[in-house]
Nucleic acid binder design. Structure first.
Length: 805
RNA sequence: GCCCGAGUGGCGGAACGGUAGACGCGGUGGCCUCAAAAGCCACUGCCCUCCGGGGCGUGUGGGUUCGAUUCCCACCUCGGGCACCA
């Protein structure tokens, strides 16, 4: 009797061997065809949780599968180690975020190793490493030099009590500060931005060429929010020198404009407000500025309170008629021109406002017969529009209206984006410092390369004031100007941590490069990432920023010019849920993987994650989960006994077992390609059941072990070594022989009027005539025909015959 | 409100337009054992049955088709994303 399967012993042995042998280290000059697999590098929050396990199980499967297929697989890993949790923990413990972060990384890395996920750890990147900070900062200065980084005023949440900026998450729903309880208000502050909008068109257009989940592409398209329309001027009535510029996507409806609206923050507001309305307008502006973001953006609430009349009129250039100008909170300064022409008949927001303020409504598109709705935004013939009347569709009318505006010199075609520039300033300590100094003489000066990295000092006091200790650190703050040598002040803001993750995949190609952030030759070789794997929660921000960085770095000659997109294929795995909500540390409902690593082992836990359902779907962690994991462990023990000769004896029909093995190869290979791991596991279980029933052959068992290698790598390695010697992971991925993989007989299903009435075993090569004859000869079929003549017989040999009466 | 995605046994889930429920969990029965654990074998959608079989079944209602879980239309429920973007 061979010894029982001891997962902990087997797993420790092979993990040590893979590390010692550097099995999954890959050099940049490796001659094999390249393949770059990347799981999103994690924020180190402590030991791995089930979401990590799921992510790295899929990633590791691909690494091992592609390696067996003969590729040089680049599989790097690192840690997104800057961020607020470490800063808060440090404040709480009155320590520094670094030791805290390093400890969390050690824990997470430890559980990744125990999972048996293999990486080229020589390439490890940590965002808080001074070397990575340096290159992050070099890139920032290049962005600055090329107009991709700039400083501008931006509204922020300001807490007067804490004297600091708050993140949206730190503002309570009632608009007060979560720490001090003071009323938070919006205030303009100088902040750093990256000009991602320069790439808006390319970010949108290149989505088409990506092999990404459709829903992620849709989310990105919506986020970019490209809309085509026109911009034109509305002269103020009686003051033709003052004009209000508006943006509209529906210039065809211009004859239906019955009023105009400015955003409350619009610069022309004070100029055009009449004396009689001054008090009301001031009152309204004051109220809007105090409204929290949430209130302002809510569609709830009485429409009557949402606007105010300025007392002024503007002239509709289309028909020369004056219309009143209002301020309304539903018009935003940040989009378009911050002013609109309002056409209540064809815009629901305008309709609601018009109703509340008793403004006229004029339809310019004929709604379909029986239309009972309010604003009509669909297609239809133009009405009430003078020279636009008679046009029967919106698209033509739009084009005609824009042409007219351009001919008259009143306005022009215009494309607007919802996408805003990326605000990267964070008033935080535990992040990459922005490498800039402010000099009274030279203004904003980038820190020169030879003085990088700018690293935050260690002798800081982490205080619960909400302020970055960098601000209070005189030694850091006061410096000299790199240009004039005079006294200057350092920027104390740090960069958004999304900056760190926007190019790490490029650095992985050659993390040893001491000259440049990205080694272009190495990046040329490995990029783009062939398979990127991560959570759907990064569908917009991280993936958008990384796409932006890749394009910008290419244009600045900091990355290969030909690589415009970082991630060729993207797979987004489902979330782990428990009791209806996402399993997470903050919700306190984590089920630690360690407990399963200690009991059933890593392979069984990996198998569970592969088997439980389609990888893209969410997983519910329930009372039953424990039993399913136990079931996976049971299967592995079954394989163990089978492989070591303790299960069934040799097959009476060895050729039949071998043919089944070839079918298994075909099935698992196909399932791997289409991310159907749950059915691949099911096929292996089914095959194992078959061997238990009909007996084994060496080829059948070896095949099973080889196919399991990417899924349960330790067990497969151990069994292969005991049976054959050497490493299963060095074996080539098996090829199915199509001849042998053919089934020796198939079930012909015979239906009468679409209902199954008989099943007959037939030769797979059976032809239509023979199948029909066989079906009609069936006693059961005859019984159901009851003497009637078939009207029609549909034969789809060898699987089906349908007799229609 | 708009945009996605999903509704299949007691449960997780299978199913190029062609046998609905693979595989697993749970359950039932049997074998092994002094007993238990482990293991092995069989059965397991619902209803009816004269045990031959028959009927009903993939959220609801229609449609296309010889045939629909699959394609089309409408609706319901749940989950997610964006939320006044002119």
């Amino acid at each position: 009797m061979a010894e029982a399967y001891d997962p902990q012993a087997v797993e420790a042995k092979w993990q040590a061997r893979w590390a010692e042998d550097g099995t999954y280290e890959v050099d940049n000059d490796d001659p094999r065809p390249r393949w770059y697999v990347l799981s999103m590098y994690p924020y180190p929050s402590g030991p791995a949780h089930q979401g990590h396990v799921r992510n790295y199980t899929f990633g590791d499967l691909i690494v091992r599968h592609r390696t067996m297929q003969g590729h040089a697989v680049l599989s790097p890993m690192g840690f997104d180690s800057f961020g607020l949790p470490a800063e808060n923990a440090a404040i709480k413990a009155n320590s520094h975020p670094r030791p805290f972060t390093d400890a969390r990384i050690a824990e997470l890395k430890g559980s990744m190793l125990r999972l048996g996920a293999v990486y080229d750890w020589r390439r490890e990147i940590r965002s808080h490493d001074p070397e990575y900070i340096r290159w992050n900062q070099v890139i920032f200065t290049r962005f600055l030099a090329n107009g991709l980084a700039y400083r501008a005023n931006a509204p922020v949440n300001w807490c007067p009590g804490c004297n600091t900026v708050l993140a949206n998450e730190q503002v309570l729903p009632d608009g007060t500060c979560e720490r001090s309880g003071d009323v938070v208000y919006r205030r303009d502050l100088e902040q750093w931005f990256f000009r991602i909008t320069r790439y808006a068109d390319e970010l949108l257009d290149r989505l088409d060429e990506l092999d990404w989940p459709e829903r992620v592409k849709i989310m990105q398209r919506n986020w970019i929010g490209r809309s085509e329309g026109a911009e034109f001027d509305l002269p103020v009535d009686g003051r033709p020198d003052v004009k209000v510029r508006v943006f509209t996507t529906r210039p065809d409806t211009s004859f239906g404009m019955t009023y105009a609206v400015l955003a409350p923050e619009h610069p022309l507001v004070d100029e055009i407000t009449t004396d009689a309305q001054k008090a009301a307008v001031a009152d309204f502006k004051e109220r809007v500025s105090r409204e929290s973001e949430i209130d302002r953006l809510s569609t709830e609430g009485p429409a009557e309170k949402r606007g105010v009349f300025t007392g002024t009129h503007v002239v509709n250039p289309f028909n020369g008629k004056p219309v009143p100008v209002y301020l309304a909170d539903y018009v935003l300064m940040g989009y378009g021109t911050g002013a609109i022409m309002a056409v209540p008949a064809e815009d629901q927001r305008d309709w609601d406002f018009a109703k509340a303020y008793d403004l006229p409504i004029v339809r310019t598109v004929q709604p379909p017969d029986g239309w009972e709705g309010e604003a009509y935004t669909g297609d239809g013939p133009v009405i009430n529009s003078e020279w636009l009347n008679g046009i029967t569709d919106v698209a033509t009318a739009k084009a005609r209206a824009i042409d007219w505006l351009e001919e008259q010199g009143l306005g022009e075609r215009k494309v607007n984006f919802r996408l805003r520039d990326w605000l990267v300033s964070r008033q935080r300590f535990w992040g990459c410092p922005i490498p800039v100094v402010y000099c009274p003489t030279d203004g904003i000066v980038a820190v020169p390369d030879d003085q990088l990295p700018v690293v935050a000092p260690d002798d800081v006091e982490m205080l619960p004031t909400g302020e970055s200790p960098l601000k209070a650190h005189e030694g850091f703050r006061h410096t000299t100007c790199p240009t004039c040598g005079g006294p200057a002040e350092r920027e104390t803001d740090t960069m958004d941590t999304f900056v760190d993750s926007s190019w790490y995949f490029l650095r992985f190609c050659d993390p040893w490069d001491r000259e440049e952030p990205v080694d272009k030759e190495a990046a040329e070789r490995w990029m783009p990432v062939d398979q990127y794997i991560g959570g759907i929660e990064h569908a917009i921000l991280h993936l958008m920023y990384a796409r932006f960085y890749t394009k910008a770095l290419a244009d600045l000659d900091l990355a290969p010019a030909g690589v415009r997109e970082p991630f060729k294929r993207l797979f987004t795995q489902g979330m782990i849920r428990m009791g209806g909500t996402k399993m997470s540390k903050s919700k306190g409902n984590l089920v630690a993987p360690a407990k399963y690593l200690d009991s059933v082992g890593a392979d069984a836990l990996r198998l569970y994650h592969l088997f439980v359902g389609p990888p893209a779907d969410d997983v519910d962690w329930t009372e039953q989960t424990e039993e399913v994991i136990e079931g996976c462990s049971r299967f592995l023990r079954r394989v163990w006994r089978l492989a070591l000769g303790e299960g069934p004896g040799p097959a009476a029909d060895p050729a039949g077992a071998d043919r089944a093995a070839h079918r298994l190869i075909a099935k698992v290979s196909e399932d791997f390609e289409r991310w159907s791991y749950n059915t691949a596991v099911a096929a292996c279980m089914e095959f194992t059941n078959l061997l238990y029933k009909d007996g084994t052959t060496d080829f059948a068992v070896d095949t099973l072990i080889t196919l399991l290698a990417p899924m349960t790598p330790h067990l497969a390695a151990e069994l292969w070594e005991r049976r054959r010697g050497g490493s299963v992971h060095a074996q080539p991925w098996p090829e199915a022989d199509p001849e042998l993989a053919k089934a020796d007989s198939v079930t012909l299903v015979v239906q009468v009027n679409g209902k199954v009435r008989d099943k007959i075993d037939v030769d797979p090569a059976i032809d239509e005539a023979a199948a029909t004859a066989l079906a009609l000869a069936s006693e059961r079929v005859q019984a159901h025909l009851a003497g009637a003549e078939p009207k029609k017989v549909i034969a789809r040999p060898p699987r089906l015959v349908n007799v229609v009466v």
